[in-house]
Design a protein around this nucleic acid. Sequence first.
RNA 1: GUGCCUGUAGCUCAAUGGCAGAGCGCCUGACUGUGGCUCAGGAGGUUGUGGGUUCGAAACCCAUCAGGCACCCCA
Length: 444
Amino acid sequence: MSTRPQNVKGMRDHLPQAMMLRQSIQATMRTVFERYGFEPLQTPIVEYAETLEGKIGDDEKLIYRFETEGGRRFALRYDQTVPLARVVAQYQNQLLFPWRRYAMGQSYRGERPARGRYREFWQADVDIIGSASPLADAEIIALLSDVLAALGFTGFTTLLNHRQIIGGIARVAGLPEAQAGGVYRAIDKFDKIGAAGVRDELLRSGIAADAVERIITLVSLDGPTDGVLDELGQRLADDARAVLAITNLREIIAAVRAMGIAEARIAVAPRLARGLSYYTGAVFEAVVADPPMGSLLGGGRYDELIGLFAGRPIPTVGLAFGIERLHDVMTELGLGPQQRSVAQAFVTIFGAAQRAASLELAQQLRHAGIAVETALDAGERLSRQFQHADRRGVPLALVLGPDELAAGTVVVKQLASGQQQTVARAGLIELIRQLHATAGPDGR
RNA sequence: GUGCCUGUAGCUCAAUGGCAGAGCGCCUGACUGUGGCUCAGGAGGUUGUGGGUUCGAAACCCAUCAGGCACCCCA
């Protein structure tokens, strides 16, 4: 190995500062997921290539594949939904449905990396497997609202649509199924290129002008949830599947309201198309206006995918949080824990004569549940030890010198302010906890 | 996968074909029980990498790697 050290393109190293945020994101999610009764599941990153092939459509070229000497073909998972389908099929007789499970882990896609998009990325998936009830959809939407709120987001909106509303729009415009895919892709860009841009794109793809206008009118619908649904109901009244879809959305929204989700948090958006490859019912995603970032999460109902593996229909609704995007956006917004160090206190070593006593003090604190970093060089000047602790972002430095040892006390110095106090050993743990509890927003 | 932009010290950036620099950061000391401030001094570069053009390349050309932006698609 003489080459320069270099991480693989599109795959990130997460240094401690970033990891503290990532771990807090995951811990927050785990707490909320379990509060909604979801159980953890973990599956291997590697699957047999055949398991993944034929499930996600044209994007199969993005799957990382490799082959062993013996000719076994493997693939890195592309998402956590297909592995879920495999697990459901494989352990059908051990699982109780409806089954709520969550999974956090990395997936891999050979895409061109960009901001908020990486070749290795973590997702947190939650799914309710084996229920067609609109209450299941509503549970997922309520959960995602709680997760985003718990992470500190205040300005997010969950956009809702339904696969059969989009399908109905295409059908009402008189488009054959073959042309529908292009229409979906065009209208999904609505937020990016606007109504005029979508109109241009549709016209350029050869769709008749009057059909284009009908589509634009429908996908431009915006405003209060019930108003949009009423309007859709009138304009799509001739399409039976769309009518059912609208009823379904009304049921979901009624349940979401019953769960107390604020009206401002949700919006019916006929322009939301998403990757429609396996979605069959409601689809949703959450977006923040500032900073601009693609969707933070996306999901929907897919009643057929798991059946491909299980051999019988298993209706499922779920979503995936994009941990990379949450991480990037939260970093830009300054959300999440601001602490720079996991350690709450730094135990200095005054000199060789106090080394043993300092180590003993550190252990005493650790066993009391306080995260402690110690100095490692008894010969280092105290000033250097303070400097090191402060640079590391440890809020407190403890000094156990000859005077303190003689008096049975410890000096506790708050590095941010420089204030220090001398406390009896008996009161030390209480003082540290107190200072930690009253620490400012930067953990100090 | 396609197109465009960028890459110089740890970081942010100068130097437009002619001696590789600044600010911040870092190290040492002033300061042997107290970091940040101040002052003095110091270290740090294969100009992403490889090739080419040229008397001479950080600069121009080609390739490659990495990052960003727009497509495509998505978390």
